[in-house]
Design a binder for these strands. Structure first.
Lengths: 151, 151
DNA sequence: GTTAATTATATCGTTCACGATGCAAATATA
DNA sequence: TATATTTGCATCGTGAACGATATAATTAAC
């Protein structure tokens, strides 16, 4: 009874579990360099474009600044990046990679490939991934707007 | 440069974000009854089959007991469930719904529908959802085994 | 039937997420 | 140019996740 409450019918539980398990797959690879998965995400944002204010990083990751700020402080303590007050706008904190932060890109060069191949399976192949990306992107865009206007 | 590190090419970031955003969509609906999303998951497990040991609940959710135990204690404190020592095996803690816990199912009856329709979009429809489920299930099964054997 | 290994749960410490709130700098308005 | 509003970031508290470790009960090995 109550088919709609069955765990096996829940999209969210699948996303939640798949997300956790992939993050776990990253763990041994990143842990070697003292990184967590969210920290790895910050690195990817800064490798794409260095010297960004906290807000831009948070927006890119669809996170709140109160999540990102402590994360950045820990990374600063590790010597991966610096946080300096913006010059034209003193409210901003400009986040910049250190040499160590930039060099991590070379050290982690095998990570995307390793995790990518760990995920490949019967229904998830180079041919089907674009379709999966499209569905996840649609869900994300749908909820991104929705969660703001609804509550 | 370094296309492989681009955030837009990452499956994990999409899963992580989609998971977070759907959980956020649940938040106002569950918050009305003082529930979090992981607590809602526990309820679904127990609605399916009441009176389970901690371990069975954890296994069903693919979580560790050190995550589930504090979660259950909070729910016990809320009067949603009880935790009693197993009779045949004194190591087990049998988790049982209270009247309040069972009644929550009626109160939350509109939640699955509400979240379901919030997620529907161009590429995610009743026709495409089974395919999405299949891909996520395959990923989960792949990693479930992998994460155990690899590290 | 002791001792050793295993199992079920709990405790601890660290790192997210995130709502709520605070504060200072910048911008808009009067 | 005062005052009000908005913006960017930080702080605080709570609830997960999860690795590491501990403890007690059960089972296996001898």
């Amino acid at each position: 009874m109550e088919e709609k409450f069955r765990l096996d019918n829940q999209l969210c539980f699948r996303l939640y579990t798949a997300s956790r398990l992939i993050t776990q797959a990253y763990h041994p690879l990143l842990g070697e360099y003292g990184l967590t998965y969210p920290q790895y995400l910050v690195l990817m944002v800064l490798w794409e474009k260095d010297a960004q204010p906290v807000n831009d990083i948070a927006k890119r990751l669809l996170l709140e600044t109160n999540t990102v700020t402590p994360l950045l402080k820990r990374m600063e303590a590790e010597g991966i990046l610096t946080r300096t007050k913006g010059e034209k706008d003193a409210r901003q904190m400009i986040v910049k990679l250190t040499k160590k932060g930039r060099e991590l890109q070379n050290k982690l060069t095998d990570v995307p490939e390793a995790v990518g191949s760990a995920v490949l399976c019967e229904s998830v192949t180079p041919e089907t991934v674009p379709g999966l990306f499209k569905m996840l992107d649609d869900i994300i865009n749908q909820l991104k707007d929705n969660n703001k206007t609804t509550d």
